[in-house]
Amino acid sequence: MMKIVVVIKQVPARDSFLRVDPGGAWIQESDLNYEINEPDAYALEAGLQLKEKSGGEVVVVSTGPARVASTIREALAKGADRAIHIEQEDVAGAGPLATARVIASALETEKPDLILTGLQSDDFGYGQTGVILAELMGLPHATIIMNVEVNGASLRLKRELENGYFQHVEMPLPALLTMQSGSNKLRYATLMGIKKAKTKEVRTIAGVQPEGAGTSIRIERVYMPGSSKQSQIFDGPPREAAAKLVEKLKFEARVL
């Protein structure tokens, strides 16, 4: 029987049209739609599959403002048993160390056997929160995991390396893993699951920054990136755009 904690994040939907605040402090969040960070959805799936195989409990943890509740409900509808919502307004300015500290303190009493999370977030993309959390909790970790096998008190993992290589690693439990996208088929919530989710426990706690958070980093300004190349972009009717492109490819780039 394992207690599995899955740390998930709510992020702007993948196809969001992003606009920067006039002051460049942050993006305009008012008209955005949100969804679960994709690698975290795979972490949740891996957690649910492990529970189905060997029994136990899946606890979902997420930090963020009130809107995060919808993503938590969805995870519960898919089969997580209960959830902890660490309520925090300024997730943007927090940075990965501060975020991991808040999560670590919320998990102090939970004592999970296994913590799973996505390898990175689609919004900030630091790719660090999981590894930092492991260090703060004194746990061994492994990153970019494709496959998890539990053998008693230890794990056998398939890690992704670069250039099409993989590596097997073994490690003891308790441990933290960051999961790669695409290694499983994601499940949908069933009607029964959605109904059940309404009765499941969601504990909301205030995200308090522990004292002595130490040095960190500060986002000074955000902006739309300038193009690194002189791009020639055509739009309008497809036929006209295609004709213009082919002319350029033949006479300017000379690749046809």
Binding site: P12, S16, L18, V20, I27, D122, D123, F124, G125, G214, T215, S216, I217, R218, I219, E220, R221, V222, Y223, M224, P225
Partner: peptide
Amino acid sequence: QLFQGKINADIRFTGE
């Protein structure tokens, strides 16, 4: 880069 390369961020170190 943030948001899968859609936004850039200037970041400064603070502290020691």
